[in-house]
Simulated scan of single mutants.
Amino acid sequence: MRKADGHSTLHLWSLSEEVGIEDDSSGDGLVLTGPDGVDRVPDVSPLVREALRRMQLGPVLLANAAPERGSGCAPDGPLPAVGDDPVLSRVLASITHLVVRTLAIDDLGGPLLSAFPLSHPAPFAPVRPPPRRAVRMVSGVSLTQESGGIAMWSAAASHRVLLHRPEAALVASLLGWPVTPEAAAEALPVLGVVPSGVIGYLTAAGMARPVLGPPPAARPPALG
């Protein structure tokens, strides 16, 4: 298996471009207006308010979404880590149909792919593929070229995926046949963290799924 080369994946969150945010009539909550209607988030904390504000501007690492000291929105005392904040987690779980999930790596090359919600709700839980477990693209997935990359879509999937970078497209191309993340990492000229990250996101979006039985004996042909 190709080593991770010192790089790691970044899991970014944003709101769909069509989503607007404003205070509710009480001033304590928020109203989110999207293409399918209105969602109300009552009694938001400064952390939730700041996280959603930043998500409206574009993909954000939630660990960096805590309000800054002196900004007028940070409470006294230590702020909780965003990933450990149950209120923020609960709010995000209630608006999955408005949330875009983006995978990137820390190489300053831009995002690898983004998953856009198509259903209500649209749960999305990327997981690390089990070691040596083969994965394959599900039947019925369509691929089309767009200005921002290659789009993947399926009538049965909860998300539409846009592959922003060639590395993500290379991983997706191998999923026409059963392949393990380890074999994909060996075959492709990409950083070692890319195959497992892309496969995890495509699986969460409903574009790929694990294959039952032992992993394939033959490796996919090397590319590049």
Results as ranks from 00 to 15, higher is better:
156 A>D: 15
181 P>N: 03
149 G>P: 03
154 S>P: 12
148 G>S: 15
154 S>C: 09
197 G>Q: 02
148 G>M: 12
152 M>G: 15
192 G>Q: 03
194 V>H: 04
209 R>S: 14
146 E>Y: 01
182 E>S: 12
166 P>A: 13
152 M>K: 01
145 Q>N: 09
203 T>S: 09
194 V>K: 01
144 T>V: 15
155 A>L: 08
149 G>I: 15
175 L>I: 08
186 E>R: 07
201 Y>T: 03
157 A>K: 00
144 T>M: 11
162 L>T: 02
206 G>R: 10
196 S>R: 14
193 V>L: 07
165 R>H: 11
178 P>A: 10
197 G>L: 08
169 A>L: 12
184 A>D: 09
148 G>H: 08
196 S>E: 05
151 A>V: 15
180 T>E: 05
162 L>R: 03
198 V>P: 11
208 A>Y: 09
159 H>P: 14
161 V>A: 07
191 L>E: 12
172 A>R: 04
191 L>N: 14
203 T>Y: 03
208 A>D: 06
182 E>A: 14
153 W>N: 13
203 T>W: 07
153 W>C: 06
208 A>G: 03
165 R>C: 00
199 I>Q: 01
165 R>D: 07
195 P>W: 02
190 V>Y: 07
155 A>C: 06
185 A>N: 09
169 A>N: 00
196 S>C: 09
176 G>I: 04
157 A>N: 01
175 L>G: 11
151 A>I: 06
163 L>S: 03
172 A>P: 06
170 L>Y: 00
187 A>T: 02
147 S>Y: 02
143 L>P: 01
196 S>M: 10
189 P>G: 00
187 A>M: 08
170 L>C: 00
165 R>N: 04
184 A>M: 08
157 A>H: 02
202 L>Y: 05
209 R>A: 15
150 I>M: 13
186 E>D: 15
155 A>D: 12
178 P>F: 06
188 L>D: 07
147 S>C: 06
153 W>Q: 13
193 V>N: 10
150 I>G: 02
156 A>G: 02
146 E>W: 10
192 G>S: 08
160 R>W: 04
158 S>E: 09
155 A>R: 15
199 I>H: 02
209 R>D: 08
208 A>L: 00
174 L>Q: 06
203 T>F: 05
160 R>D: 01
205 A>F: 10
166 P>K: 10
168 A>E: 08
174 L>T: 06
145 Q>L: 15
157 A>W: 05
172 A>Y: 01
191 L>C: 11
183 A>V: 02
144 T>H: 12
167 E>L: 01
147 S>V: 14
172 A>E: 05
151 A>D: 02
209 R>H: 08
148 G>K: 14
173 S>Y: 07
156 A>S: 14
166 P>G: 01
197 G>P: 09
170 L>E: 03
